[in-house]
Amino acid sequence: MPPATARTLLFSVVMALATAPVAGAAPPPGTSPPTGAVPGAAAPADAAAGPGMLTAEPRFDWPLRPRPTVARRFDNPEHDWLPGHRGVDLGGAPGSPVLAPGDGIVVFAGTVAGKPVVSLRHEGGLRTTYEPVEAGVAAGARVTRGSPIGTLAAGHEGCPAPACLHWGARRDPTIRNRPQYVDPLGLLRLAPLRLKPLVAP
């Protein structure tokens, strides 16, 4: 191939690559993105009603109202025999309603080691416990998120508030037939997700 022809062919290839559209790049000036598209961001599957807001609701909510302070956080020990804190303590007042944070079934409502306890089973092999709680429900009852399951009692050891709700959560036994304790706060969406409004260039 003559040198002049080779140079012409190489120039054509370089120009084609330079002008080709780049995936994810903004559209050329004077053009509009496809309907519903957000430049620079993928539209979430659960985005709907209001502009820029994710409308999917969380499956779980706080078991006390108003939103309580966290008096003691989750501290899962590395080994079962080590001390730790397999749940969170939420500050409250004696007699406050304790609410189901999510839909489930009451699997226990009674006394354990002299403390009143309520336990719920949720989808996905999750079980949550609440103490000290004077039960207002019976085992086998179905509850929905926000429905009362009992009232908070005083006397939780180490509580800096007039009363504390110990809220625990665990998954079904998996390894060595032992339950997996999880942080209940991880079940909550602590703040609504919002998409930032677009600013015109």
Results as ranks from 00 to 15, higher is better:
109 A>I: 02
9 L>V: 14
169 A>Y: 05
174 T>P: 01
12 S>P: 00
44 P>I: 11
58 P>N: 11
171 R>A: 03
14 V>A: 12
166 H>V: 05
46 D>K: 04
162 P>H: 04
196 K>E: 15
163 A>S: 01
31 T>V: 08
71 A>Y: 06
190 L>Q: 08
22 V>G: 02
86 R>H: 07
20 A>L: 08
37 A>S: 15
30 G>N: 10
71 A>M: 12
194 R>K: 10
125 G>H: 03
152 L>F: 13
121 R>S: 10
190 L>K: 08
169 A>T: 05
62 W>K: 13
128 T>S: 14
48 A>Q: 11
76 N>Q: 06
46 D>S: 08
95 G>H: 00
195 L>G: 11
166 H>A: 04
172 D>G: 11
6 A>H: 11
191 A>K: 00
57 E>F: 09
83 P>W: 15
176 R>Y: 09
164 C>Y: 10
183 D>N: 15
127 R>D: 02
81 W>S: 14
56 A>E: 15
95 G>T: 05
59 R>Y: 01
147 S>H: 09
135 A>C: 00
135 A>W: 00
119 S>Q: 07
80 D>L: 08
15 M>T: 06
66 P>N: 14
168 G>D: 10
130 Y>I: 04
81 W>E: 13
91 G>W: 01
148 P>R: 10
197 P>C: 12
194 R>D: 04
189 R>S: 02
127 R>Y: 04
39 P>Y: 04
155 G>N: 13
83 P>G: 11
83 P>H: 14
137 V>Q: 05
80 D>S: 08
84 G>I: 11
121 R>V: 06
168 G>Q: 13
177 N>W: 08
30 G>L: 11
116 P>M: 02
152 L>H: 09
168 G>Y: 12
12 S>F: 13
108 F>I: 07
78 E>R: 15
49 A>P: 01
107 V>Y: 03
186 G>M: 05
175 I>C: 04
186 G>F: 02
145 R>L: 11
137 V>K: 05
109 A>R: 03
11 F>R: 15
114 G>F: 03
52 G>P: 07
193 L>D: 05
69 T>A: 15
181 Y>L: 09
141 A>D: 12
35 T>M: 15
17 L>M: 09
14 V>K: 06
167 W>Q: 07
141 A>V: 07
184 P>G: 06
111 T>R: 12
152 L>K: 07
94 P>I: 03
112 V>Y: 00
66 P>A: 10
68 P>N: 04
18 A>L: 07
176 R>P: 00
92 G>I: 00
159 C>W: 06
190 L>W: 02
43 A>S: 13
